[in-house]
Amino acid sequence: MKVVIIGGAGGIGSSAAFNLLSAQGTYEIVLVDTRPNMITSHTMDLENALGLGATADTVRGGTPEDALDADVVVLSAAVPLRLNSSRSVFLADNARIVNECLRPLREAGADFGGLVLMLTNPVDPLLTWVHRQGWLPRERLIGYTLNDSLRLRTGIAFALGVPPKDVDAWMLGEHGEGQVPLYSRVRVGGQPVVLTDEQRTAAEEYVDTWYSKHVALDSGRTSTWTTGLGTARLIEAIATGSGTLVPASVVLDGEYGVHGTSLTVPVELGPEGVRRIAAWDLPEEEAAGMVRAADRVEAGAADLTDQAVAQPS
């Protein structure tokens, strides 16, 4: 499987490449970026890791044209992180970057047969906007949002005093303020658990403040390690078609009462993209949260539609 990482010189892109070295499956990894010296630095380093028995065939630098015959194009290019209160502040600037990075694929039209895995934020309105350009079907557009569920699992683990790996919990909805925690489906050690009000408050405090606390550090870095590993796991799910359900942002067509907007839902992935969206029956509060999240994402996508950047070249 050929995986092209656009933005491969950055922390998340290079972390995804590193973690992909040990993922299940065999990969040709190509790093693309506007900083060729950094690409060379990463590839010189990563190609030596192949000697440790990594599963990848090759790791090399490339050009945007490498994406044309890729099985998966990972898009992690973005403007530099700065102090902010919401991922939405990056919408217009990152839309311009996404527009330019995807230009070769858009112009190739039907000749491009791969998947686009979007990491650039705010992922939901960007994915909605790209889909509305009409050149790629929704099952081949996937947004990375696994971190939301991981943070919910960590917050619940801290509240309960258990290891995070023992917690199974899902965060659906928007990758941002419109996130929808599914407290109705929390399991610990495989067993259903109902959180007390105090435990739920503690978990929510962890989840709701994680992003603002991290950005306030002004470290200049994003969730490099988590996103890199999570991206590799999603690509592994695509390559193997294991049938495992994972959270990802995809454009919905009536699922969860949402039409034409991208939100995080439980999906099954395979080499052809989104194989199935799991239709879970949600309690009224959680179902209403999905509709509210869709309204938020729709507002962001509509803003892009009114800008020049939204017009494909």
Rank of each mutant, 00 (worst) to 15 (best):
K2E: 10
K2Y: 02
V3F: 10
V3N: 05
G7I: 11
G10M: 07
G11N: 13
G13Q: 04
S15G: 02
S15Y: 06
A16C: 12
A16F: 02
S22Y: 14
S22R: 14
A23N: 07
Y27T: 08
M38T: 11
M44T: 14
D45V: 08
L46W: 04
G62M: 07
T63C: 01
E65H: 09
D66F: 04
D71C: 00
D71M: 01
L75N: 06
A77S: 15
L81D: 02
R82N: 01
L83R: 14
S85H: 13
V89Q: 10
C101Y: 05
R103N: 07
L105W: 05
G109F: 10
D111H: 14
F112P: 08
G113L: 01
G114P: 03
N121H: 11
W129N: 01
R132M: 02
G134D: 04
W135N: 08
R140F: 09
L152Q: 07
A157W: 10
F158M: 15
V162W: 04
P163Y: 06
K165V: 13
D168N: 11
D168Q: 12
W170I: 04
L172C: 01
G173E: 11
G176N: 06
P181M: 05
P192R: 10
L195I: 08
T196D: 05
D197Y: 00
E198F: 01
E205V: 13
Y206K: 01
T209R: 14
W210C: 00
V215Q: 08
L217V: 10
G220R: 07
T224P: 00
T226R: 03
V250F: 03
V251C: 08
G257A: 05
G257H: 09
G257F: 08
H259E: 15
L263N: 09
E272P: 00
V274D: 02
V274Y: 04
D281T: 14
P283A: 05
E285C: 00
M290D: 10
R292G: 13
A294N: 10
V297H: 06
A301D: 07
A302H: 11
A302W: 03
L304P: 02
A308Q: 12
V309I: 14
